[in-house]
Computed example of a mutant assay.
Amino acid sequence: MRSYQEMVVNQIRQMSEANQELIFYNNKFAIQQRLKTALEESFGVVSEKLRKTMEENKVVRQRTKMQHEQNKEEVDFQEQFLKEQIKFIHEARDEEEEKFEKLQQQQREKFVKQSTPNTSNTEEYRRRMKLQNS
């Protein structure tokens, strides 16, 4: 027959050790569960922040694209306006040059007429001279 020690005390000791082990693993499991819950909550918060940030970035990109298009249109409009102004200035300059050339030509023609002896003018001059001398 087995002894009381062997049958009862050893069994109680093993049960006590197993009970302590069970408490240890239960505590460890509870800690792991709290950690898991905290990580899931953190993950949820971070995921939500990421989603919001991505939405904000999308809005910012759209606004930036719209602003870029508006700026491009404005620059194109200003470029067209300046080209038209330059064209207008060139046309006005060309017109003024033509007027100036015509005026110069008229002045040359006038000078040539005055330089060349006109027979009627010469006769008129002689007649006046005769009248003065008489």
Rank of each mutant, 00 (worst) to 15 (best):
L50P: 03
R51M: 05
R51F: 04
K52G: 00
T53D: 03
T53V: 11
M54V: 12
M54Y: 06
M54G: 02
E55P: 06
E55F: 11
E55I: 15
E55L: 13
N57M: 08
N57W: 02
V59I: 10
V59S: 09
V60T: 10
V60Q: 08
V60Y: 08
R61M: 14
R61L: 15
Q62G: 04
Q62E: 15
R63H: 02
R63M: 12
R63Q: 07
T64P: 03
T64H: 09
M66E: 15
Q67D: 13
Q67I: 14
E69F: 06
E69N: 11
E69P: 04
Q70I: 14
Q70E: 13
N71Y: 06
N71L: 15
N71W: 08
K72V: 05
E73V: 11
E73R: 10
V75W: 09
V75D: 07
V75S: 05
D76Q: 11
F77P: 01
F77V: 04
Q78K: 07
Q78S: 04
Q78H: 11
E79D: 04
E79A: 11
E79G: 05
Q80G: 05
Q80P: 02
F81G: 03
E84W: 00
Q85G: 07
I86K: 15
F88V: 10
I89N: 14
I89V: 09
H90W: 04
E91T: 08
E91R: 06
E91M: 11
A92L: 02
A92E: 07
R93T: 13
D94E: 15
E95H: 14
E96W: 09
E96I: 12
E96R: 15
E97W: 05
E97C: 03
E97T: 10
E98P: 00
E98Y: 02
E98K: 08
E98H: 02
F100G: 01
E101Y: 01
K102V: 01
K102Y: 01
K102E: 04
Q105L: 06
Q105I: 07
Q106S: 09
Q106D: 08
Q106K: 05
Q107S: 01
K110V: 00
K110T: 00
F111T: 06
F111L: 11
K113R: 14
S115Q: 12
S115H: 10
P117K: 09
N118W: 07
N118Q: 10
T119P: 09
S120I: 04
S120R: 02
N121D: 15
T122F: 13
E123L: 11
E123K: 06
E123A: 07
E124N: 15
Y125L: 08
Y125G: 03
Y125A: 09
Y125F: 12
R126P: 02
R126N: 08
R128L: 13
M129A: 13
M129E: 14
M129T: 06
K130T: 05
K130N: 07
L131T: 04
L131V: 03
Q132G: 05
Q132M: 12
N133I: 06
N133G: 02
